[in-house]
């Protein structure tokens, strides 16, 4: 009997063949793939539009095989609002880091969520500014050393890290808001479920959806990748608890 080769793993159609520029141990690549798989599986690639942020993932449009818009720093939710209102038949998502979304773009994300805009936000939280070289972010951990907090984040001056998922969950408008992580295979599988659900809810025109993903930055954290994944579990996760904060289907939030 002739041997038959079955394809059991392939590049999602929604991803392009370009090699990413991300540092070794950075989990942007994993998150990109989870988004791409979700678009493929929901059959929406051909009507998807992504909005790129300013930050490490500024070149995200090179890695996807979908239409993309490149936003000014922090404004991706405003662009997504404009696009989605004009084309409610399309699937629109923003992909933003913590500097982009939680700092300069705080106003845009809060109001987009509050209006209940029917797009999806992938919020990648790695507790630091990556692209500009490791400065303090609004999500930087208390005591965490960065190039602009060389003695560690001083909460008496810089305040405490902002828990974006919790903050956005306080809005009354229905939304799907969840925090996930990708530092172990189990977490990756779980994150995929939530990302896909976020896009499904958009496809069904249900609500605004945001998936926060705790991510790594070995380069700017100053540690090897395996230690970085451990740092997510030991330092970030206790402060940023994983879970579903708002889910209109389950009456949560």
């Amino acid at each position: 009997m002739a041997e038959q080769a079955n394809v059991i793993f392939r590049r999602p159609q929604s991803l392009s063949e370009n090699v990413t520029h991300y540092c070794p141990g950075c989990t942007h690549g994993i998150i990109h793939r989870l988004v791409a798989e979700s678009l493929d599986e929901l059959g929406v690639r051909e009507r998807a539009v992504g909005v790129a942020p300013v930050g490490c993932s500024v070149l995200i449009y090179n890695y996807f095989n979908v239409d993309f818009l490149e936003a000014p720093h922090g404004r991706a939710p405003a662009l997504a609002t404009g696009f989605k209102r004009m084309r409610p038949d399309m699937i629109v998502f923003t992909y933003q880091g913590d500097g982009d979304l939680a700092s300069i773009g705080m106003g845009e994300i809060v109001h987009a969520a509050n209006r209940g805009e029917k797009f999806t936000t992938i919020f990648v939280n790695n507790a630091i500014y990556g692209m500009t070289g490791g400065q303090m972010a609004p999500t930087t951990m208390p005591g965490q050393k960065t190039t602009t907090s060389p003695f560690g984040r001083d909460t008496s001056l810089a305040g405490y890290p902002i828990r974006m998922s919790e903050l956005l969950s306080a809005l009354v408008t229905p939304a799907y808001i969840v925090r996930t992580a990708v530092h172990t295979p189990m977490h990756v599988i779980n994150a995929k479920k939530h990302i896909k659900k976020a896009f499904r809810l958009q496809k069904e025109n249900k609500c605004f959806s945001l998936v926060e993903v705790l991510s790594t930055c070995p380069t700017n954290w100053g540690m090897p990748p395996h230690e970085a994944t451990g740092w997510v579990a030991s330092t970030m996760q206790p402060y940023y608890p994983l879970g579903v904060f708002k889910d209109p289907e389950k009456g949560v939030g």
Binding site: V49, A71, R75, A78, G82, F83, E108
Partner: peptide, 18 residues
Amino acid sequence: VQAESEVAVGNMLFGAAA
């Protein structure tokens, strides 16, 4: 759309014009 600020207005137009 009544936006939350003129910063948002400009960027909503950016998305919408695309």
